[in-house]
Design a protein around this nucleic acid. Structure first.
Lengths: 186, 186
DNA sequence: CGGCGATTATAACGACTGGTCTAGTAATTG
DNA sequence: CAATTACTAGACCAGTCGTTATAATCGCCG
């Protein structure tokens, strides 16, 4: 696996996280990654869409690893999830509200217009949700409620990121952290 | 106020709700609204961005009206918000998972790259949040908690829409409805 | 009916898009 | 060292983008 190829993927992740799929052109990816145009098509002969899918998969693995670590950091799911949200809030703030929700924009852009991208996003969300659900199951919630709560947690993460980035304020993420904690101990 | 102008705005709302700002080209808006190209610039001389801002403002007013009606439909905020989410779930499903979150994609695309669009989205979210917050205040929640919960509710709505549309399944919205109800009665 | 403002129709523009192609250079291997 | 494979660089392409310009047509009103 080459460095240039990784660089292209990483830059694609970053740009599509910030502005989505259609607003990210290949020339911008090339410029910001320093990769030559010939290399882009050498490594990604299927083109832009295939590159985006690789970027989604790459970022999905990173987030899954973060989620697993976050879930393992505390015994009680409430503490784990609250802490995860607080860490995320810090990350979003540190990025100047430019990062957060790595696939959110793509997921919406592609939900009904691009099957391949939609499938990649769907898989990512399902992987992440499964990690949270496993933690809730471990924490003693019934299977039915664990599934429902896991879905809600992912929704809250995505929604709170959108609000924080739009309002350029970390409060929505912190509010979400607090209230999810209340719900999970209810 | 002319019909053609309204038609253009309505089409813009629909297309940008489905796929976002950058994926929506003026030619598609023209084609689907049946408006002549000359008219587009006649009515919106400042161009695409100004049109999008009008669309955001237009849709924000509609959602605000829906939210007010939803909040007024029940005495207890828990019932009002739960019911609102269930109605929304039905709407998203009926659209074949193509609609929902009228400004979500734009909000993310523009969060750090387009100040005017970002401001329009920020105003919309704040208007909606204020409506939910007022209902919570009425319902006897402390001012601090009402504010926090209102933020969470908007986040949950946005997040659950993303998941439902990505997964083409109404469950995330229904799960959110159930668990928000639990939280608000906790 | 004519004048005037509102609206339409359409060609053209420059910039940018994703993608193709090809020759050249770099790296690896026997 | 030569052959082969990996990678680069840049020109080129057709198409699309948002916008401008301008003349023509439409609708309203006195």
């Amino acid at each position: 696996m080459s460095n240039k190829r990784d660089e292209i993927i990483a830059t694609t992740c970053r740009l599509m996280e910030m502005q989505g799929y259609h607003a990210t052109g290949l020339n911008q990816i090339l410029e910001e990654s320093g990769a030559p145009k010939g290399s882009l098509y050498y490594y990604f002969p299927e083109g832009k869409e295939a590159l985006a899918i690789e970027a989604i998969e790459h970022t999905s693995r990173l987030i899954a690893a973060n989620l697993r670590a976050g879930m393992a950091a505390h015994d009680h799911p409430a503490d784990a999830i609250t802490d995860f949200l607080q860490t995320l809030a810090h990350y979003v703030q540190t990025s100047g509200f430019q990062a957060g929700g790595p696939i959110t924009a793509i997921a919406l852009e592609a939900a009904s217009t691009n099957e391949a991208l939609n499938a990649a996003c769907r898989d990512a969300y399902q992987d992440w949700q499964a990690i949270v659900e496993a933690k809730l199951n471990e924490g003693g919630y019934t299977a039915v409620r664990a599934r429902r709560l896991a879905s809600l947690v992912i929704a809250v993460i995505e929604g709170a990121i959108i609000l924080s980035r739009t309002q350029r304020n970390v409060a929505p993420l912190l509010d979400a952290a607090t209230e999810i904690g209340v719900l999970l101990r209810c």
